[in-house]
Amino acid sequence: MIQLKEDKEPINDSKVRSFIAIETNKELEKGISDLIEKLKRMGFKANWTQAKNVHLTLFFLGDQKISKIAHLAYKIGERLTGFPTFIFKIQRIGFFENNNVPRVLWLGIKDDPTLVGLYEEVKKVIKINEIDTKEGDFVPHITVGRIKGYPNHWQELLNSLDFEEIKVFVNSIGIYSSTLTKKRPIYNKLYTVDFEGGVIING
């Protein structure tokens, strides 16, 4: 494991759009791919999440200098050393709506105090490092798609869908860059913060 040194300055210190998230697994990737195919057959149209991009977002950081992201990774690594590994469970399909119009389809996660504890620990480091993030209740979910079109009786159709529970093992978090393109965002993991201690530089 590569231990990131706090005084190591990146050669390129431009700003990048970034976020902190938990990587998932192949089982969830397949589950989302199968679910999206069912939704398409029902008549839903959306900007669908690519299976390879599936993750559980903890914080959106916005545009930050690479040096600040590196420093944040180091500080989060210090804070999370010794944090317990755990499993969270994905077990239901949900949606956000506005005026009875579906906007976002997502997969909900069973209430988990360890997941909430992880969120709170990372939030403390973000605040100490004076990075502004949106305040609000932590509602962990995994986005399936942002709706562009939907069939009649869409709510009944969504309620008819079952999603078999999937377990995700967590022993680290990642800091990612997000590059917006005309088709979809491109994600690149910059740092992996391991609960056993240390930060892996990914790119």
Rank of each mutant, 00 (worst) to 15 (best):
S14A: 03
K15C: 10
K15E: 14
R17G: 01
F19I: 13
I20Q: 12
I20H: 12
A21V: 05
I22K: 01
I22L: 06
E23T: 15
N25H: 10
N25D: 11
K26A: 03
K26S: 06
K26P: 05
E27W: 05
L28E: 00
I32T: 09
I32W: 06
D34Q: 12
I36F: 11
I36Q: 12
K38H: 07
L39D: 12
K40Y: 05
R41S: 05
G43I: 13
G43V: 13
A46C: 13
A46T: 14
N47G: 08
W48E: 11
A51R: 10
K52W: 03
H55P: 03
T57C: 11
L58H: 02
F60G: 02
F60V: 08
D63G: 08
Q64R: 15
K68P: 01
I69T: 06
H71W: 11
H71E: 09
H71P: 00
L72Q: 09
L72N: 06
Y74G: 08
E78N: 11
R79C: 06
R79V: 07
T81H: 04
T81M: 05
T81N: 07
G82K: 13
G82Y: 13
F86R: 09
I90C: 03
Q91M: 08
R92Y: 15
R92L: 10
R92G: 11
I93V: 15
G94L: 05
G94C: 04
F96Y: 07
F96T: 00
E97S: 02
E97D: 11
N99S: 04
V104A: 11
V104L: 15
W106Q: 08
W106T: 07
W106H: 10
L107T: 09
G108S: 02
K110F: 04
K110M: 03
D111N: 07
D111V: 04
D111E: 10
D112Y: 07
T114I: 15
L115A: 04
L115M: 10
V116H: 10
E120L: 12
E120S: 11
V122E: 03
I126M: 04
I131S: 07
D132G: 07
T133P: 00
T133Y: 12
K134R: 05
E135G: 00
G136L: 09
D137K: 11
